[in-house]
Structures are given as C-alpha cells and as structure tokens.
Computed example of a mutant assay.
Amino acid sequence: MARKVAVIGGGIIGATAAFYLSFLDSNHQLAITLFDDGTGQATKAASGIISPWLSKRRNKRWYALAKDGAAFYSKLVADAQLGSDAYQQTGTIVTRRAKDALEALYQEAQIKVAHTPAMQAVQMLSSQEVAQRLPFLTNPPAGIFVKGGAKIDGAVFIDHLLSRAQQNGVTLKRQRVTFDARGAIETTDGPELFENVIVATGTWMKGTLEPLNYLVKVRPQKGQLIDLTVSEHQRAGLPVLMPESLSDMIPFDGGKLVVGATHENDGGFDLQATSAAEATLLGNAKTFAKRLSANQITGVRVGTRAYTDDFAPFFGHLPNNPNILLGGGLGSSGLTTGPIIGYLLAKSIVDHQLGDWQRYTKSVSQYVI
C-alpha cells in the first residue's frame, strides 16, 4: 500500500518538495497530496534574482545554503523541464556607491569565481558598458557583471512545478489546512492521517503548528513590487541590476520591468498595495532611469515573507517528531534557498533517512519550541 505523504504550502519550498517527491518516487510507493490556498504567498508575488555570491551577509550557514541553492537550479530546471518564461540565466550587475568599495568587491568576486562554478565569470563594467547592456537606463552606475546570475518569475515558476508534480500523480487541493491535537490534518473532508508531512506555510506556520502546541518564531514582512512597461521592442535577455541600498531592477522579455521589493516590517499580513510603496519603488528606479513615469506602471504585487530573528532559513524535523518536516524563515532569499530545501526534505522522505544539514541550518528547535 502506498505511503501517504502531505505537503502543506505550495510556495517555493512546498512546490519543489511536491515535484521531487513525485520525481524521485520511481517505484510509485508514495501517495502525495499538496494543500495550499495561495493566499499571500510570497513566491507568487515575487520576481526574484538568483545571485547570492556578492551579498553583504556574512552568515556562513546562509551563504553555504544560498551558494548550493544557486548551483542546484541547473538540476531543477532540467528535471522539471522549466522554460525561459520561468527561469532565465541572463547575468546580474551588482553595484556599490563608492568606487573603492566596488573595486574591493571585484577583488572578492575574482576570488569566489575561482572556486564557484555557478558564477561562471565576473567582469568589471563601466557605467557606459552597463548602459550598453541595459539601454533603458539614463544614469547607469558602474558595476560587476556576474554571468551565472539568473532571474525568476515566481508565479510562472510555481505553476510550472505544480503542473509537473500533478502530471507525476500529485493531488493538489486548494484549501488551507492545519493539524488537530493528535497530528491528523484537518481538511474540508474531515481529519486525515499521513505517514509523513512537510510543512512549508511561510509566515502562517505559527497557525499550522499551534494545535500541536508548538510556538514558531517567525514574523511576517510585507513585500511589494511594481511592474512597468519599458518598451515593446526591448531586446531579450537583459541582465538584472542589483544597486546598493536601492530597489532591484529586473527586466523581462517583452518590455516588462519589475522593480522591488519593499521590506515592510510593520506590514504584517496586509496584502493591500499602497501608493507610498509604489512611489518609493518608482523613485528608486528613476535614480537610474529618469524617463520612467507612473503611467508606465501596469500593476503592483504584494506578498508576505517569513523572517526569523537571525534572518536565517531553517529546515529539518519537528522537535520530537521525525515524521513532520519543516522548512521556513526564508526571508528575501527564498527563491534562492527554497528549492534546495524542498529537494532535501523530499529526498529524505523518499530515502527514509534524515540528512545531516548542520552546514546549512541551525537545529529546528532554535526556531520552533
């Protein structure tokens, strides 16, 4: 009889986990159900950047996870047969305001690229060279081009993964669920017991685990992005601009430009777009592209990220219950770190063996008590 496995949450961790549970289950020994209602999901609201190597963050576990997460994408894209509308490796341009800081960063980049194959190559670009690569800019900064950097359309990415998972036999139920006191999942059809469960409900994890008397130490952070039309004739394959202390600018094929995202710690679970955030994001973009105007904005997307006190993701099994696995606290690096977490959790269920993940994360008991 097939072993029943549930994935709660269809964001970047949950969707990847559901896909790999079905992909790795070559003997069809698992009956996999994914529960998700999609409300406030950070991934679907996001357009993200896969380029962690020159981050200012100095958390060694986070960097190991982000570095391996970026490298993992080549496997995921091949396994799930993802198209360029979901994932596109066009390179990233990272800037620093001060010339000496940019030169120091370039020295760091040269050291890292020597032992980080996923970076592929790095190149110092003058402001004129940046303008050649991003022609819609009117005031381009100098920067460092990282060839291996990539960009993702979060909503398309999730839809593709879930579609592949369903083709492999995963059952998708569009509903929000929680546990009851005995560990069964409360569904609209009544309580249901599963032999293994992956919980990846982001900042809603508190409510998911509350019936089991666990306290999850995550907090919500609101994030908003704006979509603009730059030019119907904009050439394809433009790189991402990651300016220091300002909003990222992510150009997509077809003349679409995404700017963001905000980091609103007081925004909580509010999913309403605000004119203040729209003005801030447009103002940040106009620092480098002064011809942009509000009438080019085609939409605002809003999501809620989950953050931990030390800004680090966590994953592993629920304290005292190895059959319930967790992954969360991704913060703003979720599109980089989420897929590899989903893969590792899925693989541990398929292999009947928990992995040694100490190089990537502290114990779950640091975040769930």
Rank of each mutant, 00 (worst) to 15 (best):
P251H: 13
P251N: 07
F252D: 06
G254N: 02
K256P: 06
L257C: 04
L257M: 00
V258D: 10
V259I: 15
V259K: 02
V259S: 01
V259R: 02
V259N: 00
G260M: 01
H263C: 11
H263T: 14
E264H: 13
N265I: 13
D266K: 01
D266L: 13
G267T: 07
G267W: 02
G268C: 04
G268A: 06
F269E: 11
F269A: 05
L271G: 14
A273K: 04
A276V: 15
A276L: 09
A276P: 08
A277G: 06
A277W: 12
A277C: 05
A277R: 09
E278S: 12
A279K: 11
A279Q: 04
A279S: 06
A279I: 13
T280A: 05
T280F: 10
T280D: 14
L281H: 06
L282P: 06
L282F: 06
L282E: 15
G283F: 09
G283N: 14
N284S: 15
N284A: 14
N284L: 15
N284F: 04
A285H: 15
A285Y: 09
K286N: 13
K286E: 01
T287E: 04
T287A: 10
F288C: 05
A289I: 08
A289Q: 00
K290P: 15
K290W: 07
K290N: 13
R291Q: 13
L292F: 15
S293Q: 11
S293P: 03
A294C: 03
A294T: 09
I297R: 01
T298I: 10
V300W: 15
R301I: 12
V302A: 12
V302F: 07
G303L: 13
G303N: 11
G303P: 07
T304Q: 10
R305F: 00
Y307N: 06
Y307M: 10
T308I: 08
D310S: 07
F311W: 06
F311M: 11
F314D: 13
F315Q: 01
P322N: 07
P322S: 00
N323L: 02
N323M: 09
N323H: 10
L325Q: 03
L326E: 02
G327F: 05
G328D: 02
G328F: 14
G328I: 04
G328Q: 13
G328Y: 04
G329L: 08
G329Y: 00
L330F: 05
L330R: 03
L330H: 12
G331D: 00
G331M: 01
S332P: 09
G334I: 01
G334Y: 00
L335T: 07
L335G: 00
T336A: 14
T337M: 03
P339F: 09
I341M: 04
G342L: 04
G342D: 09
L344D: 01
L345F: 10
A346W: 00
K347Y: 14
S348V: 12
S348E: 13
S348Q: 11
I349C: 12
V350I: 14
D351F: 12
D351I: 06
D351M: 14
